[in-house]
Design a protein around this nucleic acid. Structure first.
Length: 573
DNA sequence: GCCGTTTTCGGCCCGACTGTTTTCAGTCG
């Protein structure tokens, strides 16, 4: 289901990871990592490419092209299989724990025989790490905390993993005979940031062909339960997928029911009950006579309950029922409203595609404006210089001549230092069209210091957007600690937008903080933070998060026409 | 393993931070 590019990139990345555990040449490892990113971000489907085409992917040379050809032919890469035989998969999984890298993972495996996160957890609790060279009390605590962080994400997957799986299943079953309608429901339809299991709903008078086609899909590892109304499977990646088939006339009620949330459904059923009605996945019924009232569309169900249709992203019993009753549901921002992207990278820093390709892809997306915001010099590893960024500005001005409907903005992603300062002096900063400022270091400052840091950044007249504000990595790194009320007040006061970073493992700001910021009158920017052309498709997750934060197009500066945006950018005190 | 206006070899992502050391290895962005 996943794109061949993603699967192949994952294999090359795995090759890099396994080599770093076995102690391979660091430059070779880095070459694999670079190539993995380039492959994932490559616009062409690699399964359609021959050796020559594969070598045209930047950072892919003779050797990696051959490995990709190997993947195209066999679905795997021989060298990866060989290394897997040496290093259990669980050892590689250990490196997902913060502060645990490949070297320490290898020590744990060789000295203690630890080859899974569960085994490591047990070893920690039994004090088996004590005395192990390189592991002290602090390491033990870090590992314990890191495992806890992973457990919080639990067995859930990031929204993009679930979305791509669901899209693939829907596409594979859509044309099965008798299938009238099919879509995903559940927490994925509500665009939760992580998904526990995938719900797919189909309408058909004859469920059998659908169920048979479903269990025959190549991604199915195990059929947990198989019936006429519901079939549950576990995929090869361990995720549970439920397919429910309902009669076409019950579509609306079923979609409403299986979309949830449970809390939202409890509220809607209560409303039905008070009106002498009964709401179930089969329809809205008269309590006394048992007669069907409505069931065909969600709109009818809500309407009969005296409510307008409520967008799935609001269905959390977070005030949407009251808002619906009082006619103050927001007109939520959609992907179609987005006119521009204010945070993107090129291969001048850590992006994988050159400026020209990113801009061309932005034009293909139909964007009206597009900002290039490569990393600034204080993120030392990116090796940015004044000369390089000014040369980029020249190239952008040249390139602009080739585009009539797309305005290319020149920006940068600044680093907010521990005191709230940023790269470059005011004169230099004034030369940019738009500036995003982000926290990339010193994540563990205490709340007071972190709050001051953000407030100072907001007060900088050249900073327009605070990038991925909490700096969290879902299941990977805790958000920074700040007094967000104070930060949002400062953002509103200074006309600084808060970013909603679309990366599925960031989704930052998170929805709850978006809603909190909204109360202060903060404006937002929904940015892909694209490091490759393929990252543009993450927009849907950022938009979903913005919807969960109740945002309208007016709240989001990159839905605005360019002149209004420019006014916002220039009006900082 | 990749790459090239420094081109077929010799560079390549550098520096800070953390924790465990007692002079540094591992991790991270």
């Amino acid at each position: 289901m996943a794109r061949a590019n993603d699967e192949a990139a994952a294999l090359i990345q795995e090759l890099a990871d396994l080599l770093s555990i076995t102690g391979g040449d660091a430059f070779k490892i880095r070459a694999y990592e670079k190539a993995a990113r380039a492959i994932a971000g490559h616009p062409e489907d690699i399964s359609t490419l021959g050796l020559a085409g594969l070598k045209k992917i930047p950072t892919v040379g003779e050797a990696i092209a051959k490995k990709l050809a190997d993947y195209n032919a066999t679905g795997t890469i021989r060298q990866v299989e060989e290394l897997r035989a040496q290093i259990p998969a669980g050892v590689r999984a250990l490196t997902a724990i913060p502060t645990l890298g490949p070297r320490k993972a290898l020590v744990l495996y060789q000295e203690l025989g630890v080859s899974s996160v569960a085994e490591l957890s047990e070893a920690v609790e039994r004090g088996r790490l004590r005395g192990l060279k390189g592991f002290g009390a602090k390491s033990e605590e870090n590992i314990r905390h890191g495992i806890e962080l992973m457990r919080q994400a639990g067995e859930r997957v990031l929204v993009d993993v679930a979305a791509e799986l669901a899209d693939g299943i829907v596409a594979a079953l859509r044309d099965v005979p008798g299938c009238r309608k099919i879509t995903h429901a559940g927490s994925l339809r509500r665009m939760r940031e992580t998904i526990g299991d995938v719900d797919v709903l189909a309408a058909s008078d004859d469920p059998r062909p659908l169920m048979e086609a479903f269990t025959a899909l190549p991604l199915v590892a195990e059929v947990i339960a198989g019936g006429d109304k519901k079939t549950s499977v576990r995929t090869t990646t361990g995720l549970q997928v439920d397919l429910r088939v309902v009669p076409p006339e019950a579509w609306g009620a079923a979609l409403q029911y299986f979309t949830g949330s449970q809390a939202h459904n409890i509220r809607t059923r209560e409303i039905a009950f008070r009106q002498g009605l009964k709401l179930s996945e089969y329809g809205l019924f008269d309590s006394d006579s048992g007669e069907l009232v409505v069931s065909e569309t969600e709109e009818e169900v809500y309407e009969r309950l005296g409510l307008p249709w409520i967008p799935p992203t609001l269905r959390e019993d977070g005030g949407e029922i009251e808002a619906a009753r009082e006619g103050r549901l927001p007109r939520l921002v959609t992907a179609e409203d987005i006119r521009g992207d204010l945070h993107t990278h090129t291969d001048l820093t850590d992006g994988t595609a050159p400026l020209e390709r990113m801009v061309a892809a932005a034009a293909d997306r139909g964007l009206e404006y597009y900002a290039i915001t490569d990393h600034a010099p204080n993120l030392v590893m990116q090796r940015m210089t004044d000369e390089k960024i000014l040369a980029q500005r020249e190239r952008i001005r040249e390139l602009q001549k080739e585009y009539r409907d797309l305005t290319i903005l020149h920006g940068a992603e600044l680093n907010i230092d521990p005191d709230g300062g940023v790269d470059w002096d005011a004169d230099f900063l004034a030369g940019f069209d738009v500036l995003v400022a982000s926290v990339h270091s010193h994540f563990t400052q205490d709340r007071a210091a972190m709050t001051r840091r953000f407030v100072t950044a907001c007060e900088n007249p050249h900073v327009h957007v605070i990038g991925h504000p909490t700096a969290r990595g879902i299941g990977r790194r805790a958000p920074v600690d700040a007094d967000w009320d104070e930060v949002f007040a400062a953002a509103a006061r200074t006309g600084t937008a808060m970013e909603i970073d679309c990366f599925p493992d960031r989704l930052d700001l998170p929805a709850d903080l978006i809603r909190r910021a909204l109360r202060y009158g903060v404006k937002f920017s929904i940015d892909t933070d694209a490091h490759a052309v393929a990252h543009f498709r993450n927009l849907r997750y950022g938009v979903g998060t913005a919807q969960r934060g109740w945002l309208t197009p007016d709240d989001v500066i990159n839905t605005w026409p360019l002149d209004r945006l420019r006014e916002f950018l220039s009006k900082k005190p």
